[in-house]
Design a binder for these strands. Sequence first.
DNA 1: GCGACAG
DNA 2: ATCTTGTCGC
Length: 264
Amino acid sequence: MELARTDYLPDPALDADAMAAMQRDIAADAVFADDHGLAPESLRLDDPIADTDPAQTALGGDGPVVVGVDQAFREDEAVSVAVALRGERVVERAVGRAPLEIPYIPGLLAFREGGAIVDALRSLSVAPDLLVLDGSGRIHYREAGIATHVGVLFDVPTVGVAKNLLCGTPVSDVEERYLDAGERVAVEADDEVETCANGTTIGHFYQSRQYENPTRRHVNPLVVSPGHRVATGTATALVAATCAGYKLPEPTRLADGAVGDVTR
DNA sequence: GCGACAG
DNA sequence: ATCTTGTCGC
């Protein structure tokens, strides 16, 4: 794919203030509204009807392409793998690398891992209808998490899927009760989010999977937020549609496994 | 000064 | 994220 904004390339050499300033610009350019023409049902992987419905036959040829991206690390380099899926079929895989030049700093993740992601995505030949990134999008101090950053860089629809909450406040205490599969709890902006009004919904906790008796053994919910060109509520619906029985959405799960063997 | 903090 | 085997539970 082609970069849309070379001026937003995540340069690790910038100082923290310049990085934050760039994120405010990125957030201003980001679109937290649906601009993708994707219907969540068109991505459904766990729906039996999707395999036999004639309307879904297009998945074999020109159906929507969802790309999962994940990173792994070695001594001093970050490796990123992008796995492109059309339906449940892997249509392409791309690998990217970049030297690790700065430590992990909450809020500045894109400047540590972004280089490898850009390297991988630039070599991807299929045009993704949606990119699923590991980490936050709008759930970020400046509404410019790694999913938003990458989305604006390529001007492609993106969503962020994290395993932990970076900032924001859930409308109901997720820690108090185990969520059932399919449940979602909105996450609102609070004082930690400096670019939008408190109370704005910036993402959701989404329980993709749960055990029958959560008391004895339970699964933690995913933290989903829109990256670019996707509305907050839609982000969770799209992620839910790409989950196929496991905690992580299929694109992410496959990219996760792929980075594994590339790294080992 | 103290607490919070994606991967 | 990463260092790491078995083990408990569904």
